[in-house]
Design a protein around this nucleic acid. Sequence first.
DNA 1: ATCGTGAATGAATATTCGTTCAGTCGATTT
DNA 2: AAATCGACTGAACGAATATTCATTCACGAT
Lengths: 221, 221
Amino acid sequence: MTTEPQTKTKKRTMPKEVRRAQLIEATLACIAELGISKTTMAAVTGRAGLSMGIVSLHFESKDNLLNETLVHLSEEVRSTWAEAVDAPDKSAAEKLRALSLSSFHPSIFDATKLRVWFAFFGEAKSRAYYREMVSSYDNERGHIAKALCAELLQDYPEASMSAEEISDALEFFSDGIWLNAMLYPEYFKEGHAALQMEQMLAAYFPKHFQLPLRPAPACTQ
Amino acid sequence: MTTEPQTKTKKRTMPKEVRRAQLIEATLACIAELGISKTTMAAVTGRAGLSMGIVSLHFESKDNLLNETLVHLSEEVRSTWAEAVDAPDKSAAEKLRALSLSSFHPSIFDATKLRVWFAFFGEAKSRAYYREMVSSYDNERGHIAKALCAELLQDYPEASMSAEEISDALEFFSDGIWLNAMLYPEYFKEGHAALQMEQMLAAYFPKHFQLPLRPAPACTQ
DNA sequence: ATCGTGAATGAATATTCGTTCAGTCGATTT
DNA sequence: AAATCGACTGAACGAATATTCATTCACGAT
């Protein structure tokens, strides 16, 4: 009976990675619910079902726990859009569409995580950390988006906007949807954000993207 | 010499409104520089050149000071867009343009104030307060924008998007520019945001808005 | 079974910060 | 000039909270 790990009442010791994940999860929940300033160590460890000292053990300090939480979020976002683009047989249009819609993938376009993102953006310290640690992701994504727009633009000799202006505009638009979805989550039901994004793509690249017809009465359940 | 108010070394007492403005100003600066969680009473009053007790005197508490700061910001924004729309002899197109560009008026589109806005968005407590106080402003602005879009849409019988979808899209777009201008202020030089907005308007309403020609080499100094 | 290791605990400590209030000082009145 | 008023001060207080560390306990090794 000593060899079976999980059926026991409650394991006292767990692998480092499990504890770290457990604490980051609890931190996300606390920040979303309480805001950063009210997210105390007691709140985080209490929600994780652990004791106060555990944070210094697996993370250096509270600050470090918050930074690691931000890194976790960023990598989740990054892997979501990277996967959307990483398909050798997709056309440029398909890639741009997948990249643009990846911002609204359920695993990241989620009330809790959106609140945490904006909690970090609102704090001067996290903003600085974000810029130095993570903004290279943003740059990478921006370059990819710009290159895809440039490729599509070859079919629009009369175009009045540059690839960079269009890819910037797409980025602004999806960021704005994020902000509004955070503030007014009830307004963004079931793919509403993605629909808006597709309309935006169709406006810029009408030869490549169909306008999704009206709200689609009974489609995706 | 006793009747001249300002040449004296340093007045000890000042009208209530002056002190309130002074404290709100200092609060804005502190939140922008330090974030909400590090914005202490000592920091605010120190920056205002006053003593700690002054806040309880003119505002009830720290919470109330923060709320009043948010009110101040909101009314500044509101009066900016209200003024843009409140001109009886403007056409609908001119009004929509003025309304859209008002988000980037220098008095509100400013690194300090943008940081403060997002600091409030990021705090759960302020978010609740924000929703109950400001969302009526947002609604009012939204209704006006929608009505203006509907009026312009009469000239586009073939249009594939509704007035609400377009006015939402304009709102998302300017919100996204706000977020990006807050995170990467150096990217938004001299009217770059306004230019992007005008391109957006021209994309939706090509019959009403000219595309502003290329970045304009040497125009506004 | 016993022991040794290190993960986990949580009470105690140190710090940070909002609020208070008795006292100070400048302006106005008498 | 003296008195009164009230805006303003800032040291002191106490509540909240991050951090520490001596102790406890589970688990694998012997």
